[in-house]
Every structure is written in structure tokens, then in C-alpha cells.
Amino acid sequence: MPSEKELQISPIVQESVMHNTKTLSNLQTLTASLFGVAAGILGLESYSGFLFYIIFSLLTAALFYTLRVAPTSLPAGKAPLDTSRYFRGPFEFWTGGLFNGLAGFILTWTLFYGLVRA
């Protein structure tokens, strides 16, 4: 939890945090559907399909972090993977998309698997 002095120096604006969260959620939902298309076309089944989804969802979060969060200057004393300044918390940033996009992934995965294998 940041101290009062840190919040005065670099305040956290809730509207910006909400905008960042919405942008990341939209990106993760879109990529989950694209990963479902890829998994269906590749003919992945069972655990290999879900492993494909988990790996590429975490890769998407890492790329988003690298391109959007990391280039900004980090305050002194902050860990390099700390996202609390831009998002509600690290758990939401790194794994929130896994649960939000799962339904879209399964839907497009089964659709394209059925289209390719039919």
C-alpha cells in the first residue's frame, strides 16, 4: 500500500485504472477467441488445448506489460513487475484474462475444431 507522500507525488487516478483494466480485458477477450480459432484449426484436444490457451494468455499479458507498462518510469523502490500503479492488482493483471476469455476460447475452439474435422 503506497504511503500518503507517494500518493501526493504520483497520484493514482481511479478513472485511469478503470480504463487500463477495460483495455486489457478487451484485448484478452479478443485474443482468447483468436487462440480458440488457432487451437481448433490445429486440432488440439483436451489438456493440450487448455495448455495452449494458458500459455498464450500469459504471453499476451507479458507482451502487454512489456509494451505498455514497462516503458514508463518506475518509482524508486518498486519491483519491476509491479502493476499496482496502473491496475487494481497483480493477480488481476496476470491471470484475470484467463477467466474472462475462457468461454470465448472454448466456443471458438469447438466451433473451428468441428469445422476442420467435419
Rank of each mutant, 00 (worst) to 15 (best):
E4A: 11
E4L: 10
K5P: 00
K5Q: 10
K5L: 11
K5W: 04
K5H: 08
E6G: 02
E6F: 02
L7Q: 11
I9M: 08
I9G: 00
I9P: 00
S10T: 14
S10I: 12
P11A: 06
P11V: 02
I12T: 10
I12M: 05
Q14L: 14
Q14Y: 04
E15A: 13
E15K: 10
E15S: 15
E15V: 07
S16C: 05
V17A: 08
V17Y: 03
V17W: 01
M18P: 00
M18W: 03
M18N: 12
M18L: 14
M18R: 13
H19N: 08
H19L: 14
H19M: 11
N20A: 14
N20K: 06
N20T: 07
N20D: 11
N20L: 02
T21G: 03
T21C: 06
T21H: 07
T21Y: 01
T21W: 04
T21A: 10
K22E: 06
K22F: 14
T23M: 09
T23Q: 13
T23D: 06
T23H: 10
L24A: 15
L24S: 11
L24Q: 12
S25K: 05
S25T: 15
S25Y: 13
N26Q: 07
N26A: 09
N26G: 15
N26D: 08
L27E: 09
L27V: 13
Q28K: 07
Q28W: 00
T29W: 06
T29P: 00
T29Y: 10
T31Y: 09
T31F: 09
A32C: 13
A32T: 07
A32S: 15
S33R: 04
S33C: 15
L34I: 12
L34T: 07
F35S: 13
F35I: 13
G36V: 08
G36Q: 05
G36R: 02
V37Y: 09
A38S: 14
A38P: 01
A38I: 07
A38V: 08
A39P: 07
A39E: 01
A39T: 09
G40V: 06
G40R: 06
G40A: 03
G40P: 10
G40L: 03
G40Y: 05
I41Q: 12
L42P: 00
G43A: 01
G43K: 00
G43L: 01
G43Q: 01
G43S: 04
L44R: 01
L44S: 05
L44F: 09
E45H: 11
